[in-house]
């Protein structure tokens, strides 16, 4: 199963980067001893850690034994570790993703040689929201020497060889960094990009919302106007009450018999607010990650 091995590769890379110790395990399984800070992120047991810290205990590091296929018999799992089957979306995997997301929010990185100039790399999530939602994950790079902006850079950067340490023999272009200015520039670019997109969805959503709102108005007006009619009809002249009228009154009492502060107008306002809340088209732009990359050439 290719997806399973994707998961395997992902976990392997994750544990390598967070500094876990790899213990021998059969093929298709991962056995790792994880540092305490990672442990805290992967298993939800705050009270245990509270106790450990309060008592000054020093328990041995947790060992995880992860298997990636249901057919795999865990034969060589160490005594301290309970074998766990990893499937897409399982609890452990979700914790690993969450841990990677917090730990990967910020980064700085270098190419190994050449004359390096700094770039700010952004990952931005763009969400089109009405009562449904569509997300895009975009990446941008801003050249800090001349403020030129490049789009869709992750595709290219993943192919480059980047390292975490500042290379000894590289020449680095020093540039003062004004974060506010960079963010402003980024948001401007994103906005331009967003405006160029196809916005039929927003038109549709808006139309649907207006349609719903007018239906709502129509409904409440019909109730309110029939209420007035009922009051008018209550003049002593009209004694023979039509059957319909009784029905109208029934409909009224539905609302009037409720708590005194809750009127039909209040209900109308609430329903209206709910509709807008649910259906109004919105675009949300959220820069999620930022890295400082020192690159020998432009990313694209």
């Amino acid at each position: 199963m290719p997806f399973q091995s994707d998961l395997y590769m992902y976990c392997k890379r994750y544990f390598e980067t967070v500094g876990a110790t790899f213990l021998p395990a059969q093929e298709g399984a991962l056995c790792v001893e994880i540092p305490r800070d990672v442990d805290k992120e992967l298993t939800d047991r705050p009270f245990y850690w509270m106790w450990v810290e309060a008592m000054n205990e020093n328990p041995p590091c947790t060992i995880l034994y992860l298997t990636f296929s249901p057919e795999l018999e865990p034969i060589d799992a160490p005594e301290r570790a309970k074998p766990e089957l990893i499937t897409p979306g399982c609890y452990r995997m979700m914790r690993i993703y969450a841990s990677a997301k917090t730990r990967g929010t910020f980064a700085s990185t270098y190419e190994s040689e050449g004359k390096l100039s700094p770039y700010a790399i952004f990952i931005v999530k763009i969400s089109l929201i009405s009562d449904r939602r569509q997300d895009f994950l975009e990446s941008y790079a801003i050249d800090l020497t001349n403020l030129q902006v490049y789009g869709n850079v992750m595709e290219h950067l993943t192919k480059r060889k980047l390292q975490d340490e500042r290379p000894l023999h590289a020449q680095i272009f020093p540039v003062p960094i004004d974060m506010d200015q960079i963010f402003t520039l980024l948001l401007q670019c994103v906005r331009l990009d967003v405006e160029e997109r196809d916005h039929t969805w927003a038109k549709d959503a808006k139309k649907r919302l207006e349609n719903e709102l007018s239906k709502l108005d129509h409904y409440y007006l019909s109730i309110l106007s029939s209420k007035e009619k009922v009051h008018a009809q209550q003049s002593p002249k009209e004694l023979d009450r039509p059957f319909e009228k009784t029905l109208i009154e029934n409909a009224q009492t539905n609302f009037e018999s409720t708590t005194n502060s809750w009127s039909i107008e209040a209900e109308r306002e609430l329903r209206k607010a709910e509709l807008i809340w649910r259906m109004e088209p919105k675009i949300e732009v959220r820069p999620q990650q930022i890295a400082l990359a020192y690159l020998a050439s432009a990313p694209v």
Binding site: R13, Y14, T17, A100, R103, G104, F106, A107, S108
Partner: peptide
């Protein structure tokens, strides 16, 4: 104000989000 952290994790986070 200065981002610091591992590039590999940055990539893992990006993939997780995707």
């Amino acid at each position: 104000d200065m981002p610091a952290g591992k590039w590999a994790l940055f990539q893992l986070a990006y993939e997780a989000e995707k």
